[in-house]
Design a binder for these strands. Structure first.
Lengths: 334, 334
DNA sequence: AAAAGGATTGAAAACGTTTTCAAAACCCTT
DNA sequence: AAGGGTTTTGAAAACGTTTTCAATCCTTTT
């Protein structure tokens, strides 16, 4: 193993191989117009000196970083990990680096993230975080950062967006349920701080029920498995049935586990539906009926759109992923 | 909203406020020795022009990026997301950005990641990826990048490491089982491409059994819930009992679900243990007995160690997290 | 009123690249 | 051997900051 070395610069490579900076630069960037002989000579000294170009200096000179900023609330949700995974796949394929910004659902953090995205000099940004609103994104945009936004319809010069369309499928789920004679009272489980998607779903839930003139409930919960589990253990002391709409799999699982552990049958007594399904919907028991959007695909698509946007070749500035209904064993097939 | 603007530079700020670059720089960096009057004047034009310093240029000038490289196989595992989450928490607190490098379990990617970590000019790196071996890490290190490695004991000038100690707990689990009269045959479920941790666990499993002179099995599997589930559905056609050691929760859940769905009782007929437990161990049914290491804590610790290493203040170059046994309902309490 | 001393400012070099433009070298052709 | 046209090469400016060092400006003090 070599010892720790001081950074070797292009200047030293030039010196050592008896050529100019410009020539070394041409070799590094595989531009033509270099004799095979000099190329080899330079490559040899690059190898010998262990020279690696400084990405920083390159970026400063070229005004490109091949770096993309990703803004998420936290890496800790399965559907966000999936999303990230799709992004990393394409980043790898297309030679981009990713800089991760997590806001942790905090407005304060969101503001500091905006600053950072601007100063970091990314080539583009993908934002999947409800903490940032239109103004924030337009601010980023005003600094010429091409941006793809997930789940927020934002129009702008260098902005594209992807819609995650749960509402329509959700409305259909509810109306079908009543039309086919569903008897249980539906309850929407509202979790704290879950953002725009939950809010929109809740609105869909309320609107649809009001339009149909049906009774409904809204239950407030913490966004955590254990809290929800114990809340519902209490709940099921008094109520012995219901159809519960949960925001994510872990919340849905908490409800069905609480039901089962209190002697209720799922789905006969208690039905549970998970809005944002992940692979865990298949793993828990009873398996969860849920909507599915393949978040890895969303991530990939976001990257492709962003790259087109960077190259000013994005024709369709928006795109939509429809939620797909997967019926499993936590609801009754009417 | 403003229109898209060309980047405003420090030079323009200097011009507009009638001072020199140096003074503007001092204002930006909140260094002392600037009259309140000039400070205000400069701050006002910064505001007016919407100037944001270029992180690139700053980094080039100061030779610091406040950027840390994170190398992981993929964001798609729950324990890695937890780890990332711990890291982002500290990064935020300490003002670091994170650049994410995913190798996707590919040697080829690993090599390109090493190059990138070097050229990206990070202030430090955290590596939690078995695809990188000692030589890779020493190579990064030879370019003066302080590095913390998870789960690989690497000694070096600017390297620290964190051990995830499952082996000892695992050995104790096995010996206790037999000592207390456990009767089922133990089987280690080997999944493909799962890295060093699985390999070490497997070795512990084999060694301990050989030392005790006990019979055992090794079963090969794909690292996916669905494949494992269907493999074990077949398996349970022929075998009606066993004690299975699975690598992660989703594999363990696949086994217990296969057992349950084929009419076997867990834990009476089939026992299952998950080596690397996550929050899902509590969610699936029966709940999974497992080892737990709080990966968010590991991530935080890695960051703290790295920051100390960067400041050349890291006294203890290594640290160890012991796996903690959580007994639940997928195994019998002897 | 002058000198001393400290605080504030600015000029210029440095960080490590790319890129433009002109000069130099080469290869053909005549 | 000279001319023309390519190719290959190098000098120097540019990217947007920080930082060093010397110069200037205030206060005090005498």
């Amino acid at each position: 193993m070599d010892n720790i070395k001081e950074r070797v610069t292009i200047y030293q490579v030039a010196q050592a191989s008896g050529v100019s900076l410009a020539t070394v630069s041409r070799v590094i960037n595989k531009q033509g117009n270099v004799t095979a002989a000099t190329r080899e000579k330079v490559e040899k000294t690059i190898e010998k000196l262990g020279y690696k170009p400084s990405g920083l200096a390159q970026s400063l000179a070229t005004n490109r970083t091949t770096n993309i900023g990703i803004v998420i609330p936290s890496a800790n949700y399965v559907y966000i990990s999936n999303f990230l995974n799709g992004i990393t796949d394409v980043a790898k394929e297309k030679g981009f680096s990713l800089t991760l910004f997590a806001t942790s659902h905090s407005r304060e953090e969101a503001i500091s993230v905006i600053e950072k995205v601007i100063t970091t000099h990314v080539d583009g940004a993908i934002i999947f975080d409800d903490e940032l609103d239109v103004d924030d994104i337009m601010k980023i945009n005003s600094y010429s950062v091409p941006t793809i936004v997930i789940n927020n319809k934002i129009q702008g010069e260098r902005v594209g967006y992807i819609t995650l369309a749960y509402e329509e499928a959700f409305r259909r789920l509810i109306t079908d349920y009543y039309e086919r004679g569903g008897k249980k009272e539906m309850a929407f489980v509202h979790v704290h701080d879950a953002g725009r998607l939950l809010a929109r779903s809740e609105k869909t839930f309320l609107d649809t029920h009001q339009k149909l003139g049906r009774l409904y409930k809204v239950i407030n919960c913490d966004d955590s498995y254990s809290h929800t589990y114990s809340d519902f253990c209490d709940y099921f002391k008094n109520y012995k049935s219901g159809y519960f709409i949960a925001y994510r799999d872990s919340i849905a699982a908490a409800i069905e586990n609480a039901a089962t552990d209190n002697g209720l049958r799922v789905p006969e007594d208690v039905e549970v539906f998970s809005l944002v399904g992940t692979k865990y919907a298949k793993i828990v028991r009873p398996t969860l009926s849920s909507f599915i959007i393949d978040m890895a695909e969303v991530g990939k698509r976001a990257m492709y759109m962003l790259i087109d946007l960077i190259h000013r070749e994005l024709n369709d500035k928006s795109c939509r992923f429809d939620a797909h209904l997967e019926k499993r064993n936590s609801t009754i097939d009417l």
